[in-house]
Design a protein around this nucleic acid. Sequence first.
DNA 1: ATGGGCACCTGGCTGC
DNA 2: TGCAGCCAGGTGCCCA
Length: 271
Amino acid sequence: MPELPEVETTRRGISAPLRGRIVTGLTVREARLRWPLQRGLSAQVTGQRVGSVGRRAKYLLIELETGTLIAHLGMSGSLRVVSPGIPPGVHDHYDLLLSSGKCLRFNDPRRFGSLLWTRRDPERHRLLAGLGPEPLGADFSGDYLASVACGRRVAVKPFIMDQRIVVGVGNIYASEALFRAGIDPRRAAGRTSALRLGDLVAAIRETLDQAIRQGGTTLRDYVDPRGHPGYFRQQLFVYERAGRPCRRCGTPIRRVVQGQRASYFCPSCQR
DNA sequence: ATGGGCACCTGGCTGC
DNA sequence: TGCAGCCAGGTGCCCA
């Protein structure tokens, strides 16, 4: 999926077409997503005006009058604003119909995405309650990262992908940020100096920020709400570049597996 | 508490 | 051409 930059690009794209519109229905073609779609969800949301469209971690928060729709894109999901008259494709699982005559259409080949409904403060929802700080927010600092890394033997790469530590850093940007900070992804989190963790915080911020400005990264499925891919792929230093020369020093990029996920790094630039 | 592994799914690509 | 095997942007849950 979509990591934070892709979710944020999606949020920006769907915000204007949704805000202030009335939900006129919800068409569900496939309810078996990561969490099965709640029965009767359409009746719950129909007739309500959309307020703001927010984001917490990789969750999109579509605020309605009596609650919030929480959408997650999983690994391969995308949301587009289209005319409901356009025939749905095989993996178009739901349409949120709007008074504007358009709809928000969710496509997700792997069905790891979800759509949840809560009447309470979404921050208190079971899936959001334990999340760490936003990487682009003020709470995410070198001091914070050093304090939570203390004593941790887990490798730094899975550590920064742990959503309880910091949210939004997925497999692409974890590798990219570690390259920019010059840190070997296999290094234990607790054996990385506070100074270097400070560099890592800056690198995560810079990487995510640049990716958002480029509309995210498209590897395979991802498209923004207008159907366009993201252009950050051209800026990737290491991700999916195994065997190719490091853009900084020419050393072949290495691929290793950590926690069943591929990690890419330059053995010369990263220590 | 921590770390590691599996599960959930489909599709695209590689190599025999 | 067909098919097995591997890989893919996430993350909740189970086990030791």
